[in-house]
Write a protein that binds this DNA or RNA. Structure first.
Length: 282
DNA sequence: CCATGAACCTGGTCGC
DNA sequence: TGCGACCAGGTTCATG
């Protein structure tokens, strides 16, 4: 039993943000062109915008055209229909040959290639929207960090017109989509910006570096398949490799790898926030 | 406009 | 050993 709880602890360590969601999307490309034979909503609130049982027939016999990412959403494109999954904190979406049995499976889709698309979630915060178009999702999301229009000029002008705590603003998916608690702490530490700094007061120089660090940090994490443990099973554990590159997140009381001062944990926008008080000054 | 906090959840941890 | 209190956190919503 101790082995199990240890595994679960590891599993909870990191939450899905843009790089993790992109990694999941990449791993689900293999379900493209399969047909959905059946949908089993195990937890009745798994579909955000409908009673889950009411969409079973609508999903049956639909072909998967594509799987892509919008912000932290996983968009599964079916004919005239979209499934927009959000993993929230503890969600896991994966394609597997043998249906696992555990109490955290919230729903699964049976595919016509003898595999299953399984959704597991301890805390039941995740789920999906069943949609006819992506308007609802698009209205929730600001610019994607990998959009060409997300450049230094965009960031400069948009930070200047806001008077918000920089961490709170970067957490806002309607401003920039895809960032979350972990990468924001890392990015602000790298840029030597205190998370409580007001966005409009950042200097050009800081914003230039901030822009660069947002893009490069996400790129590097995607390269290492994120820092989230993906498709967890006892006999086949896939782990994202980025965890070892984290500098401040979950490093309270450890040494800052730049100045060797101790990392402190504070509260910003009601989130646990990790900073080096020496590198990041208000 | 902006900040804060509750609600949604469950498992893990800590203090007694 | 166990029990209550509290924490974690992405997002939405209500409130000041």
């Amino acid at each position: 039993m101790s082995k199990i709880s240890c595994a679960w602890r590891g599993r909870l360590e990191h939450l899905p943000e843009l790089p993790e969601v992109q990694t999941v999307v990449n791993s689900l490309k293999k379900i493209i062109d399969t047909n959905i034979l059946d949908f089993n909503p195990i937890w009745n609130k798994i579909v955000y915008n409908h009673p889950s049982s009411s969409i079973i027939n609508a999903i049956k016999n639909k072909k998967v055209y594509n799987v892509q990412r919008s912000g932290k959403y996983i968009i599964i494109i079916l004919k005239d229909t979209y499934i927009a999954f959000h993993l929230r904190m503890t969600g896991h979406l994966y394609n597997i040959t043998n249906l696992p049995t555990n109490k955290y499976i919230r729903c699964y889709f049976t595919l016509d290639n003898n595999t299953y698309l399984v959704y597991e979630d301890i805390r039941k915060f995740g789920g999906f929207y069943y949609l006819k178009n992506l308007e609802l999702i698009n209205n929730k999301l600001g610019i994607d960090p990998f959009n060409k229009q997300f450049n230094f000029k965009w960031l400069l002008s948009n930070l200047k017109i806001k008077n918000r705590q920089i961490k709170s603003l970067l957490l806002d998916q309607k401003f920039i989509c895809g960032l979350g608690n972990i990468y924001i702490d890392e990015i602000l530490w790298k840029t030597k910006i205190h998370p409580l700094r007001i966005s409009s007061t950042l200097t050009k120089k800081e914003i230039r570096l901030l822009h660069k660090n947002i893009v490069t940090t996400l790129e590097k994490s995607i390269k290492y398949h994120g820092s989230t443990i993906l498709n967890f099973k006892f006999d086949n554990m896939k782990t994202g490799g980025y965890s070892k590159y984290l500098n401040v997140y979950n490093k309270t009381n450890q040494e800052c790898s730049f100045c060797f001062n101790k990392i402190t944990k504070i509260k910003v926008a009601s989130r646990g926030t990790h900073i080096c008080r020496n590198c990041q000054k208000i």
